[in-house]
Design a protein around this nucleic acid. Sequence first.
RNA 1: GGGGUCGUAGUUAAGUUGGUUAUAACGCCGGCCUGUCACGCCGGAGGGCGCGAGUUCAAGUCUCGUCCGCUCCGCCA
Length: 590
Amino acid sequence: MSTFITTEKRTHYCGSVSIADDGREVILMGWAHRRRDHGGVIFVDLRDREGIVQIVFNPEAGQTVHGEAHRIRNEYVLAVKGTVRKRPEGMTNPALSTGQVEVVISELEILNESKTPPFSFDDEDISENIRLKYRYLDLRRPAIQQNLFLRSRLASATRHYFEENGFIEVETPFLTKSTPEGARDYLVPSRISKGMFYALPQSPQIFKQLLMVSGFDRYYQIVKCFRDEDLRADRQPEFTQIDVEMSFISEEDIMRMMEGLMARIFKACLDREISLPLPRLTYADAINRYGKDNPDLRFGMEIVDLTSIVKNSGFKLFADVSASGGVIKAVRAEQASGLSRKDLDGLTDFVAIYGAKGLAWAKVNEADWTSPIFKFLQAGEVSAINEAMAAKPGDIIFFVADTPRIVHDSLGNLRLNLAKKLNLIDPDALAFTWITEFPLMEYSESEKRYVSTHHPFTSPFLEDLSLMSTDPGKVRARAYDLVLNGSEIGGGSIRIHQKDVQSQVFSVLGLSDEEARLKFGFLLDALEYGTPPHGGLAFGLDRLTMIMTKAESIRDVIAFPKTQKAACLLSDAPSRVGIEQLMDLSLKIV
RNA sequence: GGGGUCGUAGUUAAGUUGGUUAUAACGCCGGCCUGUCACGCCGGAGGGCGCGAGUUCAAGUCUCGUCCGCUCCGCCA
């Protein structure tokens, strides 16, 4: 074989050959995307990461080259030398960015052959298990490559932004200490200390706070985090955070700095302008108006509280729910009377997922309602509801009556479901909102104690401190989430920097001084050595990339993702290990 | 842990009320073809229906179990 590759250098990417190169000799290397062999002339679409260009083998080019070109099959790896030529009249291909030109080949070297791939790279609906098993081939598909290119630009823009603003990137350990609060840890057994385990970090939370104690003042890191919890379409067991912490700052400073980051990222990656400052919503407002702490603000359809209108209603269900401390709320789907009875039954099943025992609906007419509950309501109630909902003929009102928790869950998700069904969402919209004033802790029925909403180092509102002993659920946290298009893309808080406040929080969480020492002793010690006021936040880089690429699954923005059972179909991880490895670690499988 | 859904040639799918040799398209292989670009034309190979039991004269088709993918609830400070 010749030594094309060692003596010659590639001059262009396939996708970057243009009409400006007309007449120029170029050297290209890439994969045979498709061949069209006419017996005489042979066309090959040559593909690399930048795109596709048509290369042409004419019989006149010579026996050797033409003969070799007959051997080309899909996905063969080629090196070619040839001359760029404007395509003959009427033979351009507008579907191709390089469709004005073609490259007439004078030299060819087949650098490598390829087995027939298990699936076509044009086909969009290949089952995911096949794609994941042959992920290296799946990643040849331009659509996924584009996602990863964008992800890289996102990370790059992030680094530039933080460097310009005086942040230092510091790496924190992956082999670290298991922390009891929060998600389940991935554990790594220690060989040297028998029976002991490291944990992979759920986030670098404590370490970045320690860096503030050390005086680094502004820290960031693009870092893998690990959580051993069940997966979702937007959750992987290992995922990437843009992790940030700052000293001598308040909420305002951090939120401004992060808004700047968002503006930079969207400008750099998508050339989109974000108007700042970003809107804000308190947690309580978000729940009351949208039923969720990650509301999708790309459309309206706000939840309306009807409890005061119907609490004394002749409709027993409403009256009973109200009397037992529940609420009656509703959303209005504009001009949705096209929904069939079957659709409505489907929606009832849908809200049942969130614990709702039923879903009442009312089609609004000129004078009355078409509704199973119409006959139970007085005329005054109907008109009051119509007014509260701003209902117009053709609208449908959906009611849920239950505990606040179930009502918000049901209607919050119903709102999303309806918006998709009724096409209310502009796919290009970017609806940011900060969510502020989260509760510091919530009572956990399963654990029979208060648990942190965010994490135990989150600072309470100082003016709420007196509630700590009397009504801990009412204490607000100095925490903030950033939500984009209904997805929580980041969250953080001002941290506790005084030891006595930290002790108070631990005690409400049911952690004794002794336990707290055992679990977080090193952080508590550090807090006693001149800790500056500090706070920070972390963004989910994967989720942000998902939104920016309009990916439906987090797997489409991760090169080598895991399945819902947390398995890697490519490498076959996790897998059994040999007895020797287990013995080294003093482990026994039970 | 639970709910839903899927599994039939390499791929994507079709397979009626269980009934001879399990279809199609694309891909693959061979032949022909000098302007195609989802090239075209002719011919061919390729699976026993995720796996395991069961019902039946007879099972992709019914039953049970099991595995895998996806999705949701719980979970994810």
